[in-house]
Protein backbone atom coordinates (compact mmCIF):
# COMPACT_ATOMS: atom_id res chain seq x y z
CA UNK A 1 0.00 0.00 0.00
CA UNK A 2 1.11 3.51 -0.71
CA UNK A 3 0.18 4.25 2.86
CA UNK A 4 3.06 2.15 4.02
CA UNK A 5 5.21 5.10 5.19
CA UNK A 6 2.60 5.83 7.75
CA UNK A 7 1.94 2.21 8.65
CA UNK A 8 1.72 1.87 12.39
CA UNK A 9 4.34 -0.77 12.81
CA UNK A 10 7.72 0.86 12.55
CA UNK A 11 8.73 0.19 16.13
CA UNK A 12 12.30 -0.88 16.52
CA UNK A 13 12.51 -4.06 18.49
CA UNK A 14 15.79 -5.50 19.65
CA UNK A 15 18.32 -6.12 16.90
CA UNK A 16 17.36 -9.16 14.87
CA UNK A 17 19.44 -12.30 15.35
CA UNK A 18 20.76 -12.00 11.83
CA UNK A 19 24.06 -13.47 10.71
CA UNK A 20 27.00 -11.57 12.26
CA UNK A 21 27.36 -8.25 10.44
CA UNK A 22 30.36 -7.63 8.28
CA UNK A 23 32.46 -5.29 10.47
CA UNK A 24 33.56 -2.95 7.66
CA UNK A 25 30.09 -2.73 6.13
CA UNK A 26 28.65 -2.10 9.53
CA UNK A 27 31.05 0.76 10.36
CA UNK A 28 30.68 2.39 6.94
CA UNK A 29 26.89 2.14 6.84
CA UNK A 30 26.33 3.31 10.41
CA UNK A 31 28.71 6.23 9.88
CA UNK A 32 26.89 7.23 6.70
CA UNK A 33 23.47 6.90 8.31
CA UNK A 34 24.44 8.84 11.42
CA UNK A 35 26.15 11.68 9.56
CA UNK A 36 23.28 11.95 7.09
CA UNK A 37 20.68 12.15 9.86
CA UNK A 38 22.83 14.56 11.82
CA UNK A 39 23.20 17.00 8.94
CA UNK A 40 19.67 16.77 7.63
CA UNK A 41 17.67 16.43 10.81
CA UNK A 42 19.53 16.93 14.07
CA UNK A 43 21.41 20.11 13.09
CA UNK A 44 18.25 21.90 11.85
CA UNK A 45 16.41 20.81 14.98
CA UNK A 46 19.14 22.15 17.25
CA UNK A 47 19.45 25.29 15.14
CA UNK A 48 15.78 26.16 15.67
CA UNK A 49 16.28 26.14 19.43
CA UNK A 50 19.62 27.96 19.36
CA UNK A 51 18.03 30.81 17.38
CA UNK A 52 14.96 30.83 19.62
CA UNK A 53 17.16 31.31 22.68
CA UNK A 54 19.41 33.91 20.99
CA UNK A 55 18.23 36.46 23.55
CA UNK A 56 18.24 34.05 26.47
CA UNK A 57 15.33 32.61 28.38
CA UNK A 58 13.91 36.08 29.09
CA UNK A 59 13.87 36.92 25.42
CA UNK A 60 12.21 33.59 24.70
CA UNK A 61 9.44 34.14 27.24
CA UNK A 62 9.00 37.80 26.24
CA UNK A 63 7.63 36.60 22.89
CA UNK A 64 4.57 35.30 24.76
CA UNK A 65 4.57 37.40 27.92
CA UNK A 66 5.96 40.88 27.19
CA UNK A 67 7.80 42.46 30.12
CA UNK A 68 5.58 44.45 32.48
CA UNK A 69 7.17 47.62 33.83
CA UNK A 70 7.00 48.21 37.57
CA UNK A 71 4.10 50.63 38.30
CA UNK A 72 6.32 53.32 39.78
CA UNK A 73 8.73 53.25 36.85
CA UNK A 74 8.65 56.37 34.65
CA UNK A 75 8.83 55.49 30.98
CA UNK A 76 9.75 57.62 28.01
CA UNK A 77 7.34 57.81 25.09
CA UNK A 78 9.64 55.59 23.06
CA UNK A 79 9.70 52.94 25.78
CA UNK A 80 5.92 53.10 26.14
CA UNK A 81 5.47 52.61 22.44
CA UNK A 82 7.90 49.68 22.47
CA UNK A 83 6.01 48.02 25.31
CA UNK A 84 2.66 48.59 23.64
CA UNK A 85 4.03 47.15 20.41
CA UNK A 86 5.42 44.10 22.26
CA UNK A 87 2.00 43.55 23.86
CA UNK A 88 0.28 43.74 20.46
CA UNK A 89 2.81 41.32 18.99
CA UNK A 90 2.37 38.85 21.86
CA UNK A 91 -1.40 39.12 21.42
CA UNK A 92 -1.07 38.20 17.76
CA UNK A 93 1.15 35.25 18.61
CA UNK A 94 -1.39 33.96 21.14
CA UNK A 95 -4.12 34.47 18.58
CA UNK A 96 -2.15 32.40 16.07
CA UNK A 97 -1.68 29.62 18.62
CA UNK A 98 -5.41 29.69 19.38
CA UNK A 99 -6.37 29.59 15.71
CA UNK A 100 -3.96 26.73 15.00
CA UNK A 101 -5.44 24.67 17.83
CA UNK A 102 -9.01 25.53 16.81
CA UNK A 103 -8.41 24.55 13.20
CA UNK A 104 -6.89 21.24 14.30
CA UNK A 105 -9.84 20.68 16.66
CA UNK A 106 -12.21 20.85 13.70
CA UNK A 107 -10.08 19.19 11.05
CA UNK A 108 -8.91 16.13 12.96
CA UNK A 109 -12.35 14.81 14.06
CA UNK A 110 -13.67 15.33 10.52
CA UNK A 111 -10.83 13.30 9.09
CA UNK A 112 -11.20 10.58 11.74
CA UNK A 113 -14.83 10.01 10.71
CA UNK A 114 -13.85 10.03 7.07
CA UNK A 115 -10.84 7.80 7.63
CA UNK A 116 -12.86 5.14 9.48
CA UNK A 117 -15.61 5.15 6.87
CA UNK A 118 -13.21 5.09 3.94
CA UNK A 119 -11.09 2.32 5.45
CA UNK A 120 -14.18 0.23 6.22
CA UNK A 121 -15.51 0.63 2.68
CA UNK A 122 -12.22 -0.06 0.92
CA UNK A 123 -10.95 -2.95 3.05
CA UNK A 124 -14.02 -4.93 4.04
CA UNK A 125 -15.54 -4.96 0.57
CA UNK A 126 -14.44 -5.52 -2.94
CA UNK A 127 -16.12 -3.46 -5.60
CA UNK A 128 -15.39 -2.12 -9.01
CA UNK A 129 -13.30 1.04 -8.93
CA UNK A 130 -11.83 0.26 -5.53
CA UNK A 131 -8.23 0.78 -6.67
CA UNK A 132 -9.16 4.08 -8.27
CA UNK A 133 -10.92 5.18 -5.08
CA UNK A 134 -7.79 4.39 -3.06
CA UNK A 135 -5.68 6.41 -5.48
CA UNK A 136 -8.08 9.34 -5.25
CA UNK A 137 -7.95 9.26 -1.45
CA UNK A 138 -4.15 9.44 -1.75
CA UNK A 139 -4.32 12.32 -4.18
CA UNK A 140 -3.99 15.22 -1.70
CA UNK A 141 -0.65 13.70 -0.57
CA UNK A 142 0.92 14.71 -3.83
CA UNK A 143 -1.04 17.80 -4.79
CA UNK A 144 1.18 20.83 -4.43
CA UNK A 145 0.04 22.86 -1.38
CA UNK A 146 -0.09 25.89 -3.64
CA UNK A 147 -2.56 24.11 -5.91
CA UNK A 148 -4.52 23.03 -2.83
CA UNK A 149 -4.94 26.69 -1.90
CA UNK A 150 -5.59 27.79 -5.46
CA UNK A 151 -8.51 25.40 -5.99
CA UNK A 152 -10.40 26.95 -3.08
CA UNK A 153 -9.83 30.43 -4.48
CA UNK A 154 -11.19 29.23 -7.83
CA UNK A 155 -14.17 27.66 -6.10
CA UNK A 156 -15.05 30.22 -3.44
CA UNK A 157 -13.35 33.44 -4.56
CA UNK A 158 -15.47 36.37 -5.68
CA UNK A 159 -15.27 35.23 -9.30
CA UNK A 160 -15.28 31.54 -8.41
CA UNK A 161 -17.90 28.96 -9.17
CA UNK A 162 -19.70 29.47 -5.85
CA UNK A 163 -18.25 32.95 -5.44
CA UNK A 164 -21.48 34.87 -5.34
CA UNK A 165 -22.92 32.71 -2.58
CA UNK A 166 -19.64 32.42 -0.66
CA UNK A 167 -18.75 36.11 -0.54
CA UNK A 168 -22.17 36.95 0.89
CA UNK A 169 -22.13 34.24 3.52
CA UNK A 170 -21.93 35.58 7.04
CA UNK A 171 -21.01 33.24 9.82
CA UNK A 172 -20.26 33.41 13.52
CA UNK A 173 -16.92 32.35 14.88
CA UNK A 174 -17.88 29.55 17.30
CA UNK A 175 -14.61 30.04 19.16
CA UNK A 176 -15.44 33.67 19.96
CA UNK A 177 -18.06 32.71 22.57
CA UNK A 178 -17.40 34.90 25.59
CA UNK A 179 -18.91 35.53 28.97
CA UNK A 180 -20.41 39.01 28.86
CA UNK A 181 -22.30 39.13 32.16
CA UNK A 182 -26.01 39.29 32.98
CA UNK A 183 -26.78 42.95 32.41
CA UNK A 184 -28.38 42.27 29.04
CA UNK A 185 -30.03 38.99 29.84
CA UNK A 186 -28.19 36.05 28.39
CA UNK A 187 -24.60 35.97 29.65
CA UNK A 188 -22.91 34.36 26.65
CA UNK A 189 -22.33 36.03 23.31
CA UNK A 190 -20.27 35.52 20.21
CA UNK A 191 -17.92 38.40 19.82
CA UNK A 192 -16.95 37.95 16.22
CA UNK A 193 -18.50 37.20 12.91
CA UNK A 194 -17.08 36.97 9.44
CA UNK A 195 -18.41 37.68 6.01
CA UNK A 196 -17.23 35.54 3.16
CA UNK A 197 -15.42 32.23 3.13
CA UNK A 198 -12.18 32.66 1.26
CA UNK A 199 -9.56 34.65 3.24
CA UNK A 200 -11.31 33.85 6.53
CA UNK A 201 -10.52 31.11 9.08
CA UNK A 202 -13.16 28.95 7.37
CA UNK A 203 -10.94 28.80 4.29
CA UNK A 204 -8.02 27.84 6.52
CA UNK A 205 -10.12 24.94 7.80
CA UNK A 206 -11.01 23.83 4.26
CA UNK A 207 -7.41 24.01 3.05
CA UNK A 208 -6.25 22.11 6.15
CA UNK A 209 -8.85 19.39 5.62
CA UNK A 210 -7.62 19.03 2.06
CA UNK A 211 -3.95 18.60 2.89
CA UNK A 212 -4.54 16.29 5.88
CA UNK A 213 -7.26 14.34 4.11
CA UNK A 214 -5.54 10.95 3.56
CA UNK A 215 -3.60 10.54 6.82
CA UNK A 216 -6.14 8.67 8.95
CA UNK A 217 -7.59 6.62 6.10
CA UNK A 218 -4.16 5.60 4.87
CA UNK A 219 -2.81 4.57 8.25
CA UNK A 220 -5.87 2.36 8.78
CA UNK A 221 -6.17 0.62 5.42
CA UNK A 222 -3.02 -1.56 5.46
CA UNK A 223 -3.84 -2.91 8.90
CA UNK A 224 -7.55 -3.39 8.30
CA UNK A 225 -6.79 -5.15 5.05
CA UNK A 226 -4.35 -7.54 6.67
CA UNK A 227 -6.82 -8.28 9.48
CA UNK A 228 -9.48 -9.38 7.02
CA UNK A 229 -13.10 -9.84 7.99
CA UNK A 230 -13.03 -13.04 10.09
CA UNK A 231 -13.57 -11.39 13.45
CA UNK A 232 -16.35 -9.16 12.20
CA UNK A 233 -18.05 -12.15 10.58
CA UNK A 234 -17.80 -14.08 13.85
CA UNK A 235 -19.34 -11.22 15.81
CA UNK A 236 -22.12 -10.74 13.27
CA UNK A 237 -22.92 -14.45 13.20
CA UNK A 238 -23.26 -14.33 16.97
CA UNK A 239 -25.95 -11.71 16.51
CA UNK A 240 -24.08 -8.46 17.14
CA UNK A 241 -25.34 -5.43 15.25
CA UNK A 242 -23.19 -3.74 12.62
CA UNK A 243 -22.44 -0.70 14.80
CA UNK A 244 -21.67 -2.89 17.79
CA UNK A 245 -19.34 -5.02 15.70
CA UNK A 246 -17.64 -1.88 14.43
CA UNK A 247 -17.09 -0.30 17.83
CA UNK A 248 -16.34 -3.49 19.80
CA UNK A 249 -14.26 -5.41 17.27
CA UNK A 250 -12.94 -3.23 14.46
CA UNK A 251 -12.04 -0.02 16.27
CA UNK A 252 -10.19 -1.75 19.16
CA UNK A 253 -8.27 -3.82 16.63
CA UNK A 254 -6.98 -0.75 14.82
CA UNK A 255 -6.77 1.68 17.73
CA UNK A 256 -2.99 2.15 17.52
CA UNK A 257 -2.99 2.68 13.79
CA UNK A 258 -5.86 5.10 14.26
CA UNK A 259 -3.96 7.05 16.88
CA UNK A 260 -0.88 7.12 14.70
CA UNK A 261 -2.92 8.50 11.83
CA UNK A 262 -4.45 11.10 14.14
CA UNK A 263 -1.03 12.19 15.30
CA UNK A 264 0.29 12.62 11.77
CA UNK A 265 -2.90 14.40 10.74
CA UNK A 266 -2.59 16.75 13.70
CA UNK A 267 1.07 17.46 13.00
CA UNK A 268 0.32 18.35 9.39
CA UNK A 269 -2.67 20.49 10.41
CA UNK A 270 -0.43 22.41 12.81
CA UNK A 271 2.37 22.83 10.32
CA UNK A 272 0.77 23.43 6.92
CA UNK A 273 2.09 26.58 5.29
CA UNK A 274 1.67 26.69 1.50
CA UNK A 275 -2.05 26.01 1.22
CA UNK A 276 -3.16 28.14 4.16
CA UNK A 277 -0.87 30.94 3.00
CA UNK A 278 -2.75 31.15 -0.30
CA UNK A 279 -6.20 31.28 1.36
CA UNK A 280 -5.26 33.47 4.34
CA UNK A 281 -5.13 36.78 2.47
CA UNK A 282 -2.27 37.75 4.80
CA UNK A 283 -4.80 39.13 7.27
CA UNK A 284 -3.45 39.05 10.81
CA UNK A 285 -6.56 37.39 12.26
CA UNK A 286 -6.11 34.50 9.81
CA UNK A 287 -2.58 33.75 10.94
CA UNK A 288 -1.86 30.22 12.01
CA UNK A 289 1.48 29.55 13.68
CA UNK A 290 3.41 28.91 10.46
CA UNK A 291 2.01 32.12 8.94
CA UNK A 292 2.79 34.00 12.11
CA UNK A 293 6.37 32.76 11.90
CA UNK A 294 6.69 34.11 8.38
CA UNK A 295 5.33 37.49 9.48
CA UNK A 296 7.67 37.76 12.46
CA UNK A 297 10.57 36.89 10.19
CA UNK A 298 9.42 39.57 7.75
CA UNK A 299 9.28 42.07 10.59
CA UNK A 300 12.98 41.37 11.16
CA UNK A 301 12.09 39.64 14.41
CA UNK A 302 14.28 36.62 13.79
CA UNK A 303 14.39 35.46 17.36
CA UNK A 304 10.62 35.66 17.88
CA UNK A 305 10.06 33.81 14.60
CA UNK A 306 12.25 30.96 15.77
CA UNK A 307 10.67 31.04 19.22
CA UNK A 308 7.25 30.35 17.71
CA UNK A 309 8.92 27.81 15.44
CA UNK A 310 10.42 26.12 18.48
CA UNK A 311 6.93 25.76 19.96
CA UNK A 312 5.92 23.95 16.78
CA UNK A 313 9.12 21.92 16.98
CA UNK A 314 8.26 21.08 20.60
CA UNK A 315 4.80 20.00 19.47
CA UNK A 316 6.56 17.90 16.85
CA UNK A 317 8.85 16.36 19.45
CA UNK A 318 5.83 15.74 21.63
CA UNK A 319 3.98 14.01 18.81
CA UNK A 320 7.09 11.95 18.10
CA UNK A 321 7.27 10.87 21.74
CA UNK A 322 3.56 10.05 21.69
CA UNK A 323 4.13 8.06 18.54
CA UNK A 324 7.01 6.13 20.12
CA UNK A 325 4.83 5.37 23.13
CA UNK A 326 2.05 4.16 20.86
CA UNK A 327 4.40 1.90 18.96
CA UNK A 328 5.74 0.49 22.16
CA UNK A 329 2.21 -0.24 23.38
CA UNK A 330 1.22 -1.61 20.00
CA UNK A 331 4.23 -3.93 19.95
CA UNK A 332 3.25 -5.15 23.42
CA UNK A 333 -0.34 -5.72 22.36
CA UNK A 334 0.63 -7.43 19.14
CA UNK A 335 1.02 -11.08 20.28
CA UNK A 336 -2.35 -10.82 22.00
CA UNK A 337 -3.94 -9.54 18.81
CA UNK A 338 -2.42 -12.23 16.71
CA UNK A 339 -3.74 -14.92 19.03
CA UNK A 340 -7.11 -13.25 18.78
CA UNK A 341 -7.31 -13.20 15.04
CA UNK A 342 -6.18 -16.78 14.56
CA UNK A 343 -9.18 -18.11 16.44
Amino acid sequence: MAGAPIAAKTALGPIKPAPPPHPVARTVLVTLAVSFLTIFILVPLVNVFVQAFAKGLDGYLAVFWPPQPAPEQVLSVVQQRKLAEAAVQAGRTWHAIGLTLSVAAIVVPLNICFGLAAAWATTKFNFRGRALLISLIDLPFSVSPVVAGLVFVLLLGRNGIFGDWATHLTWIDPFSLRWVGFEAGFPLAFERDYSGVIFTPLAIVLASVFVTFPFVARSLTPLMESQGTDEELAALSLGASGWRTFFKITVPNVKWALLYGVILCTARAFGEFGAVSVVSGHVDVNDTMPLRIEKLWNEYNNQAAFTVASVLALLAVFTLVAKAAIEWKAARDLPQNQGHSSQ
Partner: peptide, 14 residues
Protein backbone atom coordinates in the same frame (compact mmCIF):
# COMPACT_ATOMS: atom_id res chain seq x y z
CA UNK B 1 14.89 6.49 14.84
CA UNK B 2 12.57 8.91 16.61
CA UNK B 3 13.74 12.01 14.72
CA UNK B 4 13.11 10.45 11.29
CA UNK B 5 9.51 11.70 11.45
CA UNK B 6 10.62 15.24 12.28
CA UNK B 7 10.22 16.50 8.67
CA UNK B 8 6.59 15.31 8.76
CA UNK B 9 5.98 17.46 11.80
CA UNK B 10 8.05 20.59 11.17
CA UNK B 11 6.24 23.30 9.17
CA UNK B 12 7.87 23.55 5.77
CA UNK B 13 8.34 27.31 6.09
CA UNK B 14 10.37 26.80 9.25
Amino acid sequence: DAVIDFPFALPTAV
